[in-house]
Simulated assay, not measured.
Amino acid sequence: MRSMSLSVSPAHSTASASGSTSPAPPPLSPGRVAAEEAAAQNPFLDAFFAVDKDRSESITPDELAAYMTSSSQFEANFGEKWMKLFDENDDGAITLDEYCNVLGLNPKQARIYRLNQLKAECLRSNRLPEDVTVIASSMGLEMQVDLTEIFRDAQRRGKDEKDVAGRLKQKLDGQFGKLWHVVMVTGQYWASYSHEPGLSFFFKIGRHIVMCWKTPGV
């Protein structure tokens, strides 16, 4: 078990910590990076994810318009065609489920594909996506990617912040074994905690600071 103590102000997203943590993992070898990126490409999914930059699994007309301005190769009515083709319930947004349904793709496999692509990108650059601020961590980069994406999924599905935290803990317990602890805050906080080596991660996405750590199950 590792013992940690830290305080954080969300305005600065910095932390000081005492205690020992697991050393950072060595950089990924070029051979493994190539292997990660060798996964079969899917141009249809790549197109959706290129537009869905905030990874909300929902594309709005504004996002389509912003994507169109990034290149001169699109027809003027490109966005209108996409909305007409993929917005099955006419609610003004194209969800990943709708997109996959029209193209005969499996949404679950699409999410796995995106996660694998994101991991390859993060491992290649040796950093998390730009909207993630690491406050304190003792775990490897690949697992950090897993946790941040599990949190994003919990945000999409959760009814409120309590539900999001519960979903995040449930998923972590199921995927990585018990016993995970999850705390979400939006203001300044102080924390003192113990965790299994290599299994703690505090990060900030948007206005939320998320604290996750694992202790032995009983």
Score class of each variant (00 low, 15 high):
Met4Trp: 03
Ser5Gln: 05
Ser5Asn: 03
Leu6Gln: 02
Ser7Tyr: 00
Ala11Asp: 08
Ala11Gln: 06
His12Asp: 01
Ser13Pro: 04
Ala17Cys: 09
Gly19His: 01
Ser20Gly: 02
Ser22Thr: 10
Pro23Glu: 08
Pro23His: 07
Pro27Asn: 14
Ser29Leu: 08
Ser29Met: 05
Pro30Ile: 08
Pro30Ser: 09
Arg32Trp: 07
Ala34Trp: 01
Ala35Asn: 06
Glu36Cys: 08
Ala40Ile: 02
Gln41Tyr: 00
Leu45Cys: 03
Leu45Asn: 00
Leu45Glu: 02
Asp46Thr: 01
Phe49Lys: 03
Val51Ile: 09
Asp52Arg: 05
Asp54Pro: 00
Ser56Pro: 02
Thr60Pro: 06
Glu63Arg: 03
Ala65Lys: 14
Ala66His: 06
Tyr67Asn: 08
Tyr67Val: 01
Ser71His: 03
Gln73Asn: 09
Phe74Gly: 03
Phe74Ser: 03
Ala76Asn: 08
Asn77Arg: 11
Gly79Arg: 07
Trp82Tyr: 04
Trp82Met: 15
Leu85Gln: 14
Phe86Ser: 04
Glu88Cys: 10
Asn89Gly: 07
Asp90His: 13
Asp91Asn: 13
Leu96Arg: 01
Glu98Tyr: 08
Glu98Arg: 07
Val102Asp: 05
Gly104Val: 01
Asn106Met: 00
Pro107Gln: 01
Lys108Thr: 07
Gln109Tyr: 00
Gln109Trp: 00
Ala110Gln: 02
Ala110Asp: 01
Arg111Thr: 02
Arg111Gln: 09
Arg111Trp: 00
Leu115Ala: 04
Asn116Gly: 05
Asn116Glu: 10
Gln117Tyr: 03
Leu118Ser: 07
Lys119Cys: 02
Lys119Tyr: 05
Ser125Pro: 04
Glu130Phe: 02
Asp131Ile: 02
Val132Leu: 11
Val132Met: 12
Val132Pro: 08
Thr133Ser: 15
Ile135His: 06
Ala136Cys: 09
Ser137Glu: 09
Met139Leu: 15
Gly140Ser: 15
Leu141Lys: 12
Glu142Met: 09
Glu142Ile: 06
Ile150Asp: 10
Phe151His: 14
Arg152Gln: 11
Arg152Tyr: 03
Ala154Tyr: 08
Ala154Val: 12
Ala154Pro: 09
Ala154Cys: 15
Gln155Arg: 12
Gly158His: 12
Lys159Arg: 12
Glu161Trp: 12
Glu161Cys: 13
Lys162Gln: 13
Leu168Glu: 11
Leu168Asp: 14
Leu168Trp: 12
Lys169Pro: 11
Leu172Ser: 11
Asp173Gly: 10
Gln175Ile: 07
Gln175His: 11
Trp180Pro: 14
Val183Tyr: 14
Val185Asn: 07
Thr186Lys: 15
Gly198Tyr: 12
Gly198Trp: 14
Leu199His: 15
Ser200Asp: 15
Ser200Ile: 05
Phe202Leu: 14
Phe202Met: 13
Phe203Asn: 13
Phe203Arg: 09
Ile209Thr: 15
Val210Gln: 07
Trp213Ser: 07
Lys214Gly: 08
Lys214Pro: 11
Thr215Cys: 13
